[in-house]
Design a protein around this nucleic acid. Sequence first.
DNA 1: GATCCACGGGAATACACGGATG
DNA 2: CATCCGTGTATTCCCGTGGATC
Length: 385
Amino acid sequence: MDIDTRIRRRERLQDDRRLVVDYQALSPVAHVEEPPGRGPVLERVLDHLDPVFEGRKPPDGALWGPPGSGKSAVVTALFDRLRIRTEQSQSVVHTTTRAQSPDAPAFVYLDTRAASSRFQLYHDTLAALTDESVPEHGVSTEQLQSRLRSRLGRYSSAVVAVDHVGEPQTLSAAEVREQFEPFGSQLSLLTISRSPPDAWPVETIEIPGYGQQVLIDVLMTRSSEGLTSDAFTHRQARTLASWASGNAHDALAALFGAADAAAAENRDQLTEADLQAGMDHVPERCVSLGWVLTLPENRQLVLYELLQLPDAAGRSVTEITDALADRPAIDLSAGTIRRFLYELAEDGIVERVETERKHDQGRPPSRIEPRFPTRVFERLYEIQN
DNA sequence: GATCCACGGGAATACACGGATG
DNA sequence: CATCCGTGTATTCCCGTGGATC
């Protein structure tokens, strides 16, 4: 055996020991097939949907609970399964030549973070119900409405789950309901929100935050999918779970950040310092990562490049704007970048913090602080782009 | 030609402060 | 002392334009 081979063998050994990170498996916004510990909630949602299985339209409903309690996880997992079942039964219909009465229900999941206009709501609903692509331009909202109407006619009933309603920057439940008014007889809505729905007559399902044990379970399950075995201990999961106090989003974001810190140092296990780094990268009053990742492309670019600026933390909005405008990756005017930054601050994705004045005169500038899990965003952004 | 939406640009407004004014 | 004014900077608001797509 020659020396090179011996060295390569050592290198490979090192590689094998190295922490493997499947970032998607650790992502707080990943869709999972079986959300752990949410069986009772699944049952209640299924109870609510019961009429569907007899071909009737269920009443409108509302699922609500605190951030990071698995609302999106439950609904996406459930609707995914239901949709697959529908598609299977529909394809049976398609293969028969005889025209049949529609007997299968439709299940649609919408995110109001991505769909904020009537056009987008109809578009996304229609897109979920058709294989063909639905035009995003050149067609009026009214045309989409009539296309959607006739499409809905092919199902016995339809349930549209509308996620993230009533957040500061999204449509309220009432607004969503109003936009879908024309389809009142054809579909029912299941809104998903952080606070209980006000007023309209619906069946309400409350989802509590995760208990400590279940959250530890969630972390262990995800780490077993995303990391090499033994990289993350039960004791560490306990630490993260208690730090996150029931919020799975924050706990997973911290785990993700910790894994990334360990990977950067070529470690095969998470240390306490990694854990701390992971938690430090999840700011207090943290905005959901899902919100950041559904922003238009150029805004995400601005955020990403902002995080790449070495000394962004100490600089004013104006200075940051100029620095970003100089970045080759960004092809936007300084004015637009500045407007983006102010808009992102308005949305709470970053925060403007007043600083002491730098000039003798004029209004004092403010600096920018991210309000989302930065490390997670950076990795996921890099994977996406 | 229609349609939606992101950009760009700029006008309008807010804020902080020192100095002038009543 | 309270208020107003001018100046300079920060922030918000608004709308026309053009790209992309049908």
